[in-house]
Design a protein around this nucleic acid. Structure first.
Lengths: 137, 137
DNA sequence: GCCTTGACTTAGACCTTGTCCAATGTAGGC
DNA sequence: GCCTACATTGGACAAGGTCTAAGTCAAGGC
């Protein structure tokens, strides 16, 4: 995580307590929090942090490529700190839990030229859906 | 389209003018309207139709498996009437236009057992992203 | 064809998620 | 330690979506 802060500082980020706390909250694997969840956890460490700052910081981290926006359900956007390692998602349809997964093969090349309709295709997202072991029990 | 209405009637759907109009608005290929767009087009044919009814009807059609929810951008949910034919989506990052596409191969089998974390995997969604020919010009 | 009834529709209040802005605070260069 | 540009704040605002109470009507039974 400190490497994240390091990278950000190198890019001219001003290091404030608020930004540090948001970065800390997002540390870890298989973390996919909504903005409000990030705000709630950040508030535990820094009670006066505002919602607007959380949204600003998340947005900046996304532009910098440090964070990935994930909109798997049809509700709040979630943020995935594992942006530097390409991966896809496995989602529980019942409880909404998300895991990062690494399928084999290359989904991009599975789209033939005839199915590209003249688009310049730059990326692909896979979302697997199912029921997690917890919910199945 | 009348087969859709037929199927719905067989399932005990009460056939109202409002539901008929929503079904009509959604007829066609590569149709991916938001709820408000559906409402706007429905209003042209049936001025007194309410937003709540459009939402209700769309929700029911989704539960019945006649309609697919697509949340490609991080804004309004779109509805895809092509639910009975499995397909995926190609999305223009600039203007948001969506095309239905059919990649080769089977994305489901690309997820090895070791990457399933005990989930019962039932489906997969692919979303290709790029720039459409219109926006590229 | 008319009645009845429960399902359907309506308008509008309300909720959640997210954005914007003017005023205030502060990190970091000097 | 001061200065200034950048960051933060709280609250208003907007879009998308849900809920509810009251009124309406499709369709089955007569």
């Amino acid at each position: 995580m400190s490497d994240l802060l390091q990278r950000l500082r190198e890019r001219g980020w001003r290091l404030t307590a608020q930004r540090r706390v948001v970065a800390e909250v997002l540390a870890g694997d298989h973390i996919h929090l909504t903005a409000d969840e990030v705000h709630a956890r950040a508030t535990e460490r820094l009670p006066e942090i505002s919602r607007a700052t959380v949204y600003n910081t998340l947005g900046e981290l996304v532009s910098l490529g440090e964070l990935l926006e994930v909109s798997t359900d049809h509700r709040a956007t979630r943020y995935d700190p594992n942006a530097r390692r390409p991966h896809h998602h496995l989602l529980c349809d019942r409880c909404g839990t998300i895991r990062d997964v690494h399928p084999t093969g290359d989904a991009l090349s599975a789209l033939p030229e005839s199915e590209r309709f003249g688009y310049t295709v730059s990326g692909v997202e896979l979302t697997y859906r199912g029921i997690c072991p917890n919910c199945a029990a």
